[in-house]
Design a binder for these strands. Structure first.
Lengths: 233, 233
DNA sequence: ACAAAAGTGTTTGATCTACACCCATGG
DNA sequence: CCATGGGTGTAGATCAAACACTTTTGT
């Protein structure tokens, strides 16, 4: 049935709509995924992405933001739509269309109390347990999207603390791309983009010599994008 | 409210879900967009994308395929999800979440009877009229996505007839990228990918000399992708 | 014979890759 | 004083961009 007129809408079928969130974090060693245990039947105890139904008075994006806030305590985090999962039988309970979103958060900002409250855990990408419904597919799709996105936009910074070292940034990109990068070439490339501010401070947690801390310079980056620069690492 | 158990679903709110289709075509000169006039009130006569509500017994993707078939007579065309438009007030009639899809079709396959039946018309991208709701935004988002996608995957072939010339292919890419390409470099690049089969036939409609017809070799392309090649034109 | 589009190669500069050593420091 | 990770430069290969003329044929 085509959309023709407002007064016809009433004869159409309404459907449950949910969002599910693929939440990535980075602990300065590995890229990680935040998973939650279902607390109730059915499938109680199974690992799953966090999700919520969309209410009539909430936009899809706000619904995703809200569930993210509820389960991590974080606002204003990187959040982007991934894909809609709309098969009729994807949820054995009832027909539910899920609009998956993925999010990149600074793992240290994440409040531990939420881990307790929601029975959540960070998993390395190569240790992801069995997930309910089509959540495993969502995760795989999100990883592919993250890899591609990271090549063209500096989203990596959303996963790092405000101040970070070049070796940390490199480790992050290595765990996203799943391959090793040459430290000299990586440093050269990232610095040539001129979107980092070097500080005079050093982080000595990783080595005795210590590595200079940098922060992301959003202004410079925005000018770069405005000029049509196709960022690629 | 979190998704916790099947038996809780019933208390959740159901919502109207629609798909809207951004249909691109190419007439060997210009990239075009297929738009439809609403036949009924309200907004009767306004230009709009074609859309349909998702039924309870149809997947989102099948819903999109079906409306595309109904309005173009075409099956098995390139169809990909674009983005969800989920603002609460985006439709003045009632709350509707729309999952926009975009499609690339061979304009010559398109049956003219459908143009009549649906009061449809092809528009050049720089002549798009005012559209209902957030359809203009959908179109803009689709154009951006098409541009990016075309850089990395050979989707252009979906817009061309089975047999096409190199200059035609170049014109297509020029109208997607909105900039001119060097004919020598373009030919060199596209042929170096080795995904085209040259025929012995010529198309003389574009010139007196005539240009050789090629067709897309999907097998070679698939091997290329399997090897992890990052196609880029 | 000429107009109009198809087709062809080379040179130059930019970018990516590979690669090896010294530096600073805490223990 | 030495083990550990941080930091630097260069040469060769590869790729992208710029660029001009010849070919074919319908009119």
């Amino acid at each position: 049935m085509l959309i023709n007129a407002t007064h016809q809408y009433r004869v159409e079928q309404k459907i449950l709509v949910a969002v599910d969130c693929i939440i990535f974090g980075f602990d300065s060693k590995n890229l990680k995924l935040l998973l939650f245990r279902r607390k109730v039947e059915p499938l109680r105890g199974s690992w799953s992405l966090i999700g919520a139904f969309i209410k009539n008075d909430s936009s899809v994006l706000d619904g995703a933001k809200q569930i993210l806030f509820e389960c991590t305590g974080l606002e204003d985090v990187y959040l982007e739509e991934l894909k809609t999962y709309g098969d009729v039988d994807r949820d054995p309970g009832e027909r539910v269309i899920s609009i998956a979103h993925y999010s990149l958060i600074r793992i240290n900002d994440f409040e531990l109390e939420h881990v307790e409250k929601f029975d959540a855990r960070w998993f390395n990408l190569d240790e992801i347990p069995e997930l309910i419904l089509d959540h495993r597919q969502m995760v795989e799709d999100a990883i592919v999207k993250l890899k591609n996105k990271a090549r063209h936009q500096p989203i990596g910074f959303n996963l790092l603390p405000e101040y970070f070292t070049i070796p940390e940034l490199q480790t992050l990109y290595e765990s996203i791309y799943q391959r090793e990068l040459d430290p000299r070439n990586f440093r050269k490339k990232i610095l040539s983009l001129d979107i980092l501010n070097k500080t005079t401070k050093k982080d000595k947690s990783g080595s005795k010599k210590g590595a200079f801390l940098y922060c992301f310079n959003k202004e410079k980056f925005d000018t770069l994008i405005a000029k049509g620069y196709n960022f690629e690492i």
